[in-house]
Amino acid sequence: MPRRRPEAAVPQSDRRGRVAGVVALMLGSAAFAGPAAADAPETPVAPTVSCSPAKLLMGLPTRTPLLDWSENLGFDASGAIWVARNFGNVVEKYDNDNRGQVVTSVPVTSPGAVRLGPDGLMYVTFGNSPISGAAKQGGVLRFDPNAADPRPEVFVSGLGQANGAAFDADGNLYVADSVSNTIERIRRDGTLDADWTDRAGKALAALGSGTDGIVAVGDLLYVTLLESPTARVVAVPIADPAQASPAVDLAAAPLTSPLLPDDLAVGPGGFLYVATGSGQLVRADPVTHTSCTLASVEPLTSVAVSPSDNRLLLLGTENGDVLKAHVPPV
């Protein structure tokens, strides 16, 4: 997500303000092929478990590197993929026949997460930038993904930097506010659960900063803390957010070059699959508190599981590519 980074004043797509050196690297490479130089030290990830590498393929190539920044990915009920282009202020729907053609686009200011709602509508967070967050101009739009010309309507407004999002089994929507470092709980009728949000914010403040990606798994939310020095993923009990606790730290100790855990998804084996701004696709087990690196590529923003094959992950990137990752059996 473009995010507020202590060392960068550049606007971000949650991550727009990512480390200035990363942005410079991207701008300095027209093709931005991805993997770091062979002699570059690998970012340590710990604690670790055995992890076979994922097979990576190009899904949707960027049209304009960096400006095409693919902030987030989501699938509608038909299986069509929607890509949030944070810098382009648009959410794009691509065809299902692998031609990579945009068939529908919906204007959204600084879009973040794209999620299919329980009502069949697509929900998109907007105002995913530090400036919008400080001014409380974030919120959530929704629209009919099957309409020939989708007309977005405001579901909720007045949020901070609305970034990651997830629905629970009861249809409540949770939105990460990266500036306020909390999670907004939004009921099905669009009203805010201020008490729940307050308790979540107080608990998260003690665990790290930079709330970013969210995924719901049963009675828990798993939330990434982008600015955590140990690349922390937190478990938040839906029934009692005050009891939030670390689920897994992707790094053993503070790093000179942080991992920047961004969006995440639940995939094969019930594991968490985390996209990092430093370019790693990480598989994490919140039960054993272990993790391993499946791939090291270009800076990643988001991950989504294909609705037709749960071993196929789609990865958003800062460069704008959408990559395919075939996950090996656990």
Rank of each mutant, 00 (worst) to 15 (best):
E227H: 15
A247C: 02
A235K: 13
D285F: 04
I186E: 06
P237R: 11
G190L: 11
L250I: 04
H289K: 12
R199A: 09
A231E: 07
T211Y: 09
S228A: 07
E298D: 07
G270P: 00
G270N: 03
A304V: 11
V236P: 00
L226R: 14
L207W: 08
R188V: 14
A242Y: 01
G210W: 01
P229V: 02
A251M: 02
G208E: 01
A265G: 09
G277N: 12
D195R: 03
P286D: 00
D212R: 12
L226M: 11
A244M: 02
L207C: 10
T276I: 05
V236K: 07
R188G: 14
L221N: 05
L226K: 10
T256N: 15
G213K: 15
V266F: 02
Y273R: 06
G218E: 05
W196T: 05
P286K: 10
V287M: 13
V297N: 08
D262T: 12
P299A: 12
L204T: 02
L220S: 14
S228N: 04
A284K: 06
D198A: 15
T276Q: 06
G201S: 05
G277E: 09
A252P: 08
L260H: 15
V234C: 13
P286V: 07
L226F: 13
D240C: 01
P254H: 03
A252Q: 09
A295I: 08
L255I: 04
T290Q: 12
P307I: 03
S291D: 01
E227C: 13
D212I: 03
Q243S: 09
R283T: 12
D263M: 07
R283L: 10
V236L: 09
A200E: 02
L281Q: 05
T256Q: 14
V297A: 10
N310G: 10
L250S: 03
S209I: 13
T301P: 04
P237H: 08
P261I: 00
A253G: 12
A247T: 01
T230D: 10
L250W: 01
P246H: 00
A205C: 10
S296T: 11
A235T: 12
R232L: 04
L192N: 11
D263L: 06
G279L: 05
A295P: 01
A304F: 09
G279H: 08
S278W: 04
V297H: 13
V215W: 07
A247W: 00
L300M: 11
Y273S: 03
S308D: 10
I214Y: 02
S291N: 06
V215L: 09
W196Q: 04
Y273K: 08
F271L: 14
T224G: 04
D262F: 08
E227F: 13
P237C: 05
S257I: 15
L255M: 06
A242S: 12
Q243T: 05
K202F: 14
C292N: 03
R283K: 15
T224Y: 00
A253S: 12
G267C: 04
P307V: 02
A244D: 00
D262Q: 09
Y222G: 10
V233I: 14
T230K: 11
V266P: 00
A295M: 08
Y273N: 00
P254S: 04
L272I: 07
V223A: 11
L260T: 14
A242V: 05
R187Q: 10
P241Y: 06
L192P: 11
L255R: 03
A203M: 00
P268D: 15
N310D: 10
G218N: 05
L220K: 15
